[in-house]
């Protein structure tokens, strides 16, 4: 167990988020089961009031998830000197088998929470709560994930032990610590470059097509969803190398550091927002069947598509500029 302010803060936040989301999920189940818009009963009024509580909690949990994601990466980076061979956050997270799963689950939860908020917003614009059951079912299904995240985080932090000098000898010889690499497994840069630029181009093209003609919306969302992992793999495979100006440093986290002018945020934030809106555009499309959402859904989808196009363009632009100005040539 490493006891330091940042780990304490992360664990505290994780507990808060989980506790709060479980509260929200619990109420959500109640609403899902007992909702009856035709009734003017007091129970129905109470359920309606609870929808405000759930929205408030989720509006709060979502930014918290994102902030704690950043803090997790910061902490992992700060901790790296404590472990033999760990060069940066990538190494720290690999110290035990819970680090990467915790990170992954956190990213997925944040994505889902974003999609949920968009759904919630859509629902609040119609006058008959058309999505109430769907969205609360979705929320209830997210609960186990949040619990898993909390458990993983606790397991991760309680399972790490810094390699410090023991009383009899230097730590180096006290146990055979495996060398932790700062590098993730990466795909060959040339293949990834081709894959990245074609995926991005297709996503953007289909997005523009959908925005202008209203067709191929599903194709666009599918491409937008695929582009997200492809882009992250590309950061690991080649974009990072250009930023670090090192042909072998495949770390997706170091670029969040001051040494690299926090460039990581300018890459990850648009990428994340783009992915959330792209995926949401698909998620909400069946809702246009609801009479009260008939006009709202297409407008929202167009708007989300525009957001994705802008964000992905920004990401591509920054990545390309970095590749051009970097002295490194692959």
């Amino acid at each position: 167990m490493i006891l330091r302010p940042s780990t304490l803060a992360l664990l505290l936040i994780s507990l808060l988020v989980t506790g709060f989301s479980l509260t929200a999920g619990f109420h959500a189940m109640g609403i899902h089961d007992r909702w009856d818009p035709a009734s003017g009963s007091e129970e129905q009024l109470e359920l309606e009031r609870k929808t405000y509580l759930i929205s408030t909690i989720m509006n709060y949990v979502f930014p918290l998830e994102l902030l704690s994601l950043i803090l997790l990466l910061y902490t992992a980076d700060e901790l790296h000197p404590l472990f033999t061979g760990a060069m940066c956050a990538a190494g720290t997270l690999a110290v035990n088998p819970y680090g990467y799963p915790a990170l992954l689950v956190k990213i997925v939860t944040a994505l889902l929470a974003g999609v949920w908020l968009i759904m919630n917003h859509l629902d609040s614009r119609a006058f008959d709560y058309p999505l109430i059951r769907t969205k609360y079912l979705f929320l209830t299904l997210m609960m186990p994930l949040l619990v898993v995240e909390c458990v993983l985080l606790f397991s991760y932090f309680s399972g790490i032990k810094p390699d410090i000098i023991t009383s009899c000898c230097g730590s180096l010889f006290s146990h055979d610590s495996p060398t932790l690499s700062g590098d993730l497994i990466s795909l060959p840069p040339v293949i990834m470059q081709a894959l990245f630029f074609s995926a991005m181009a297709l996503a953007l093209l289909s997005g523009i097509l959908f925005y202008r003609t209203g067709r191929y919306g599903q194709l666009f969302s599918a491409l937008a969803a695929v582009t997200f992992p492809v882009s992250i793999a590309s950061i690991i495979s080649f974009i990072g190398l250009y930023i670090y100006e090192l042909p072998s440093h495949h770390c997706p986290f170091c670029l969040l550091q001051k040494e690299y002018h926090f460039i990581g945020y300018f890459l990850y934030v648009p990428l994340f927002i783009g992915a959330v809106s792209g995926i949401s555009a698909r998620v909400i499309s069946p809702f246009s069947a609801n009479p009260s959402l008939r006009r709202i859904v297409p407008d929202t989808r167009r708007y989300l598509t525009l957001v994705t196009i802008i964000c992905y363009l920004l990401f591509t632009l920054i990545a390309t500029v970095e590749m051009i100005i970097s002295p490194l040539k692959l």
């Binding site: 006891l3 302010p5 780990t7 304490l8 000197p81 033999t84 000098i165 180096l172």
Partner: peptide, 26 residues
Amino acid sequence: SRPILKSEIQRTYQSIFDWRGGMTLL
């Protein structure tokens, strides 16, 4: 003999400060 690397000393110092800071924080 006991060889000690600088990185190990750094690590140990960091841990001690972290631990003290963490306890006080608790």
